[in-house]
């Protein structure tokens, strides 16, 4: 086990450094890139917190729909093939429900401020 700081603390310290010491020093494209860099680190922070749970939920639903147990990547690959070969109906309620849930879980990491994510959450 490593000594402190935790990985979350290390990333947060870099986010704070970009925010407090870097962004205002830059102009134009470099300033934009500093904002993007900060945003990427925030994605990683959210992913560290949520990924394991999200992937577990996604996998459980896929196991139900596909009636098989494999790793998450493999299950998604099989689902894509079933959609391509029309072995699963694209209007299937369980499928649509699963895809909505999975996409919302992905966005909770990638972009929790996205307009359609917020709209979907409130409606």
């Amino acid at each position: 086990m490593n000594n402190p700081p935790s990985k979350e603390e290390l990333i947060t310290s870099v986010i704070e450094f970009i925010e407090n010491d870097i962004i205002d020093e830059l102009v134009g494209q470099k300033r934009f890139h500093a904002h993007v860099a900060k945003n990427s680190l925030q994605i990683i922070l959210r992913q560290l917190k949520l990924e394991e749970k999200n992937n577990r939920f996604e996998k459980n639903r896929l196991k139900e729909i596909l009636k098989m147990d494999k790793d998450l990547n493999e299950l998604n690959k099989i689902l894509c093939q079933k959609i391509d070969y029309e072995e699963i109906d694209i209007n299937n309620n369980d499928l649509i429900d699963h895809l909505f849930k999975t996409t919302m879980e992905k966005l909770s990491i990638d972009q929790p401020n996205y307009s359609a994510y917020l709209d979907e959450k409130t409606n």
Binding site: V36, I43, L107
Partner: peptide
């Protein structure tokens, strides 16, 4: 840094 990050914006279009 933005070419790397933009891949994650593809999930916006999924919703």
């Amino acid at each position: 840094v933005d070419r790397a990050a933009i891949g994650r914006r593809s999930s916006e279009t999924e919703i």
